[in-house]
Design a protein around this nucleic acid. Sequence first.
DNA 1: GGCTCCATGTAAAACGTTACATGATTTC
DNA 2: GAAATCATGTAACGTTTTACATGGAGCC
Lengths: 182, 182
Amino acid sequence: MSGSVLRYALLGLLAREELTGYQLSRRLRNPVGYFWSASHSQVYPELARLEAGGLVAHEVVAGPGPRDTKRYRLTARGRDVLGAWVVTPAPYDEQDEFMLRIYSLWTGDPAAAVAMLRERRQHHEERLAEYERILAEIGPLPDPAVVDETFCTVATLRRGVSFERHARDWCQDLLDSLGAAH
Amino acid sequence: MSGSVLRYALLGLLAREELTGYQLSRRLRNPVGYFWSASHSQVYPELARLEAGGLVAHEVVAGPGPRDTKRYRLTARGRDVLGAWVVTPAPYDEQDEFMLRIYSLWTGDPAAAVAMLRERRQHHEERLAEYERILAEIGPLPDPAVVDETFCTVATLRRGVSFERHARDWCQDLLDSLGAAH
DNA sequence: GGCTCCATGTAAAACGTTACATGATTTC
DNA sequence: GAAATCATGTAACGTTTTACATGGAGCC
């Protein structure tokens, strides 16, 4: 029973629907990939470990593809482990490679710095539009809030919207103070 | 010549002042630790690699401690490598263990979830105050902006302020919609 | 014919964390 | 006298990335 974070990403996805290893890998690009990603070569061994620990189980299903697929589901024990983990405080400091660049931006070429910041701002802009599009698709939540899958999905999207907006504005402010026209 | 990010954290610190391995380790908790951290057991081997590549050099100095210390400085080549890296686009998706918890919050105990979110909001509040204190200490920047060390430090702090503010408000909104009184 | 998607795995290499190892000086 | 700080390193372990390996179905 390893203590890696990946296992909780997998349990969290399986708490919502039954999935194959391949489908889990894809979701770890999108939509969960927005805040946690992993490659398939990590997923398959981790699934085997989770099954050995009794947190997930699988049945073999003839899928749409040519080969038999393993459809995984969360066990009651898996659900308990996940539920206990989510209310645990997360480590506070995240690594931010972009900020590391900003910290030493003064050592780089000014014109290249402006180009990099413009690209970054554009990236935030696009991601913001994407989050807002998904939110619009989901529509309004019921007013006495029901804390279910959708509620949590919307919560993460709202955080995304807030984050991208502030990040975009910060890029713009920095560009302005660098004296970059338009 | 490895391609890890740590090397740029070290180069970025050495671009500002000459430091020993131990001092570098401490700065990777604070202030750079706000967005990049590393333990001393990573720093010492990486410094050796950087020196082998001609990006840093050291001289042995009798420090305040009992033992001789190695004071490292950036070489011209190290400065070039750093300057080229900072204007390079950073990978966009960062891992966010906290958001992974939020995504599956619905599987956890509601009261425990509220407690966790309150603690998190408090954390953002404290970090916000810290950044604002440091900004006040630095004071205002010259108006025709000079893109130097201080300018970049202030840029990272402003981003920190903006981030903590939005994160705190998001926590509060979520607590509100969970119907948590105060 | 080549590319992408479906689908599963293993292996090697790189990277990061924690523990081991040592020891003087300063502060409580 | 105990704990923290200064100061440097190595070793073991865990995690992550990239490459290796295979192969059918559908699309351009």
